[in-house]
C-alpha cells in the first residue's frame, strides 16, 4: 500500500485541531449567567405578552368605555401601571444587553486572558493564536445571537400584542422600542463581542479593554440612531397651516412649505387653528403649509435590516482588525516553514 509510505507518526505529532470544549470549560459560569439572564428576560417578556397585556388592555377598555362616559366606573389602574413598569424594565434590560456582552468580552473573554498570560498559555498548548481568537469569536457569536435573537423576537411579539389595545403602549419608533423590536439589538451585541476582542488584543489589559468595548457599543448605538433614518427613502407629507403636523412615524425633517414649494425652518408658532396670531407670521414667510419627512411604520423592516447590516459590517471590521493585530504580534507559519522541516 502506498499510504504506508506516508510518515506514520504525522498523526501522532500533529494531532487534530482542538474543538471548542476548552472554551466551555473556561467560561461555563459565564454561559450559565447568560442562560439565566436570557431565561429571566424571556419569562418577563412572555408574562408581559400574555397576562399583563391582556389585563392592561382590559383596564384601558373599561376606563375608556365607562370612566370617560359615565364619570363613575370600576377599572384596574394597577394592571396599567404593572404593564408599563414591566415593559420599561424588560425593554431597558434588552437595551442594556449589548453593553453586558461588551463588558464581558472586553474584560473576561479577552482582556484578562491577555493581561494575565492565559491566552499565551493556550497558544503554547495545541492552539494557534488565530484559532484561539476564531474559536473565542465564533462560539460566543452563536450563543449571543441565539439568546439576543430569542429575546428580540419575544419583545416584538409582546409589543405587537399590545399595539392598539393599550393607550400608553410605546410607539414603534420609540428610541428603545425601535431597537429592541428588531435585529439591530443583536448586531449591537455582536459589536460588543468583537470590540471586546479588538480591545483585548490591542490593549492587553482588562479594564481598558472593557472600557474600549463599552465605548464602541455606545458610539455604535448613537451612530445607528443618527444614520438609520437616512438608510431608506423617507416619505414627505404636506399638511395645511390650520392642521399643523399630522404625521406620526420616525421623523427625518420637518418645517414650512412656501408658495414656491421651498422647505424652510419652522419658527415654532404652531397651527393657525390654535393661535390665529401665527397667521401673520406665516404670511410674512410666504408659507402655505407644514411638511414632514418621515418613515411610516411600513418602513420598519427596511430600516431595521439596513441598519443591522451596517452595524454587522462594523462588527466584522473590528474582528478583522483584531485578527490582523494578533497575527502581526505573534509568530505565524511562514511559507518556507514546512520546507525547512524536510
Amino acid at each position: 500500500m502506498t499510504t504506508l509510505a506516508l510518515s506514520p507518526d504525522s498523526s501522532k505529532t500533529t494531532g487534530h485541531a482542538p474543538g471548542a470544549g476548552w472554551l466551555f470549560r473556561l467560561h461555563r459560569p459565564a454561559l450559565y449567567v447568560w442562560i439565566g439572564i436570557v431565561a429571566v428576560l424571556a419569562a418577563g417578556l412572555v408574562w408581559l405578552w400574555g397576562p399583563l397585556t391582556d389585563s392592561s388592555a382590559a383596564a384601558w377598555r373599561e376606563y375608556n368605555e365607562f370612566c370617560l362616559k359615565r364619570g363613575s366606573c370600576h377599572y384596574d389602574p394597577d394592571a396599567i401601571v404593572r404593564y408599563k413598569d414591566v415593559y420599561g424594565y424588560t425593554t431597558g434590560a434588552l437595551t442594556a444587553l449589548p453593553f453586558v456582552v461588551a463588558a464581558w468580552a472586553g474584560a473576561a473573554l479577552f482582556g484578562r486572558e491577555l493581561e494575565h498570560g492565559t491566552a499565551q498559555l493556550a497558544w503554547t498548548q495545541g492552539l494557534s493564536p488565530v484559532r484561539w481568537l476564531a474559536t473565542k469569536l465564533i462560539v460566543p457569536t452563536v450563543v449571543v445571537t441565539a439568546g439576543t435573537g430569542l429575546l428580540v423576537a419575544l419583545h416584538r411579539l409582546m409589543w405587537s400584542a399590545g399595539d392598539g389595545r393599550i393607550d400608553t403602549a410605546k410607539s414603534w419608533y420609540d428610541s428603545f422600542t425601535l431597537h429592541t423590536n428588531g435585529p439591530t439589538t443583536v448586531a449591537f451585541a455582536l459589536t460588543g463581542l468583537t470590540a471586546g476582542a479588538l480591545g483585548g488584543v490591542l490593549l492587553r489589559r482588562t479594564l481598558p479593554a472593557l472600557m474600549f468595548a463599552l465605548t464602541c457599543v455606545a458610539v455604535m448605538r448613537v451612530l445607528a440612531d443618527q444614520v438609520m433614518p437616512h438608510l431608506w427613502p423617507a416619505v414627505t407629507r404636506v399638511t395645511s397651516l390650520d392642521d399643523g403636523y399630522r404625521s406620526s412615524g420616525l421623523g427625518v425633517d420637518s418645517g414650512l412649505v412656501t408658495a414656491t414649494g421651498a422647505h424652510i425652518a419652522d419658527p415654532g408658532c404652531g397651527p393657525t387653528s390654535v393661535s390665529s396670531a401665527c397667521k401673520t407670521v406665516y404670511d410674512d414667510l410666504d408659507a402655505t403649509g407644514f411638511y414632514t419627512t418621515y418613515h411610516p411604520e411600513s418602513h420598519y423592516w427596511p430600516l431595521q435590516l439596513t441598519t443591522t447590516a451596517l452595524v454587522v459590517a462594523v462588527a466584522t471590521a473590528l474582528a478583522v482588525a483584531a485578527f490582523v493585530l494578533l497575527k502581526r504580534a505573534t509568530a505565524t507559519p511562514t511559507r518556507g516553514g514546512t520546507e525547512a522541516s524536510v
Binding site: 505529532t13 503554547t124 525547512a340
Partner: peptide, 18 residues
Amino acid sequence: TDPASARARVGYVAQDKP
C-alpha cells in the same frame, strides 16, 4: 521549522506561570 508550525511539539512555561 518555524515556531508557529512547531507549536504542537513545543512545550512552554512562562515566568509567571499563568
